[in-house]
Write a protein that binds this DNA or RNA. Structure first.
Lengths: 211, 211
DNA sequence: TAGTCATTGTAACTGTTGTTACTGATAACT
DNA sequence: AGTTATCAGTAACAACAGTTACAATGACTA
C-alpha cells in the first residue's frame, strides 16, 4: 500500500501523515459497477482514490438518476467527509465507473488529523472546493446547454475517464445518466454521426473528434 | 459587535474563539442590492452572516444569470472559504438580497483557527456540507422540475427569506433569476393566479397558499 | 394634462424535448 | 436453424419552453 500512497499522495502529505495513513488505512480493490455508497446510508470511512474512476449520481422522486460528476485519482468524496463528521445520511449514490483501487481511512482519524496536519486540512478544503466546482459545472450543463451539447460533453468526459475513444454503453444507459429518454439519445447520436463526430455500433460508440 | 456575535454564534464557538473574532473581525452593514462578490475576483476576507440574506448567482456564457441559493443568518460563503485559502478566483456572484449585517474575518485567521479550534473546523465543514446540499437542491430543481414548479418553489423561498408573503419583483427580474424569459414567467404566473395560488399586481406578487 | 416609460397580458409561432408505437438488426440461447 | 431478447432507427405526435410582436395598463414627469 505504501507504494501506491507515495506515488499518488506524496506531494500532498508530509511523511508522518503518510506513515499514519499506511498504518490505519485499508487497501481495497473495487470492481467496475460496484455500488460503493447508497442514498440514505451512513458512511463509516473515507476513501482516497488511487486509480480508476467513481461516478456520483443523484436520484429523482421517481427513482431515476442523473450523473453529477466523476471522481478520479487523487480525489476523495466530499459528501463522505461531512457524512463522517456529522453522522449524516448520504445524499448521493457512488458507483465504480471502472475498476478502482482505494485506501479507506477510518472516520476517527479525520478530526485528529485535521487538528494535527496542515496538509490534511488543505487536502480536505481543496477536495471540498473541487467538488463544489464540479457541481457548478454540472449546473452549467443542465441549465445552460441543450441536450445535444450535454451529450457531446458527456461522451468526451467518458472517453477521457476511461482513456479510450470507444464508449461501451447502450443508448438506454446514456439516456439514464443524462436523465432523458432512449429515443432522444438515439436521435441526437444519429445527428452527431451525420456530423462526423461519432461512429455508432451496437453496444459501443466510437468518438471521432475528441475536443 | 460582541452582542451580535454571541446572539448568533455563541452556540457554535467556544468563548476564546468568540473573543478572537470580536478582536479581529470588522462589522459591516450591507444595503439591499449591493454586489458583494463578483465572478473572477479574488476574495480577501470571509463573511459571517448576522442578519439578512445574500443571493448567490451563476453566470452563463452570454452573461445571463441563474440563482443558485440564498445564504441566511449563521451561514457563511463556502466559495469564499477556499478562495481565501487557495487564492482562487470566485466562480460565483454574491448580491445582498435584503439589507444585511455581517462580520468580516481576515483570511490569515482561517488557517490559524482551523488548527486551534475544533469548533471552527466543525463550522467550516458544516458550512461546506450545507452549501453542497444547497447545490444539490438547485440541481434537483433544474433537472427534475418543470418551470411552473420551479417558479412556485422560487416564490415560496423568496417569501420565506424576506418573511413576507408579498414579493416585490417584476416578472422580468424573476425570469432573470430562473434563467428564462419574461413571457414564460408572465404566462405561468397567470396560470398560478387562476389556480388561486398567487395574486398578481404591478411590481409585486402576493403569495396566497404558502407551503 | 399630455407624454413617456416600464410593466404586464396575450396571441401566434418555432424549436426542442419527451412519448408512443412499430420495425429491423444483431446477439444469445436452445 | 429457429426462437427469443436486447438494441437501435424512425415516424408521428404532444407538451413545454423560448421568441416575436403588439396592445393595454399604470406610474411618473415635464
Amino acid at each position: 500500500m505504501i507504494q501506491e500512497l507515495t506515488q499518488n499522495y506524496a506531494h500532498l502529505f508530509e511523511k508522518e501523515l503518510l506513515n499514519e495513513i499506511s498504518q490505519v488505512g485499508t487497501y481495497k480493490d473495487i470492481p467496475e459497477g460496484h455500488k460503493m455508497i447508497e442514498i440514505g446510508e451512513y458512511v463509516r470511512s473515507m476513501p482516497l482514490l488511487i486509480s480508476g474512476a467513481i461516478k456520483i449520481l443523484r436520484e429523482d422522486h421517481d427513482g431515476d438518476e442523473l450523473l453529477l460528476y466523476f471522481l478520479e485519482k487523487g480525489d476523495t468524496c466530499a459528501m463522505t467527509l461531512t457524512c463522517c463528521l456529522g453522522q449524516k445520511k448520504s445524499e448521493i449514490r457512488a458507483i465504480a465507473e471502472t475498476d478502482a483501487k482505494l485506501i479507506m481511512i477510518p472516520i476517527e482519524k479525520m478530526e485528529e488529523w485535521s487538528a494535527k496536519y496542515k496538509s490534511w486540512r488543505n487536502f480536505v478544503f481543496e477536495s471540498y472546493h473541487n467538488r463544489l466546482n464540479e457541481l457548478l459545472e454540472t449546473i452549467d450543463s443542465i441549465a445552460f446547454l441543450k441536450m445535444d451539447e450535454r451529450l457531446l460533453k458527456y461522451l468526451n468526459e467518458k472517453a477521457r475517464i476511461s482513456n479510450d475513444n470507444i464508449i461501451n454503453s447502450t443508448h438506454q444507459e446514456i439516456a439514464y445518466e443524462l436523465h432523458t429518454s432512449r429515443v432522444v439519445i438515439s436521435r441526437l447520436l444519429k445527428k452527431l454521426e451525420n456530423l462526423g463526430k461519432v461512429e455508432l455500433h451496437r453496444n459501443h460508440i466510437v468518438i471521432k473528434n475528441i475536443n
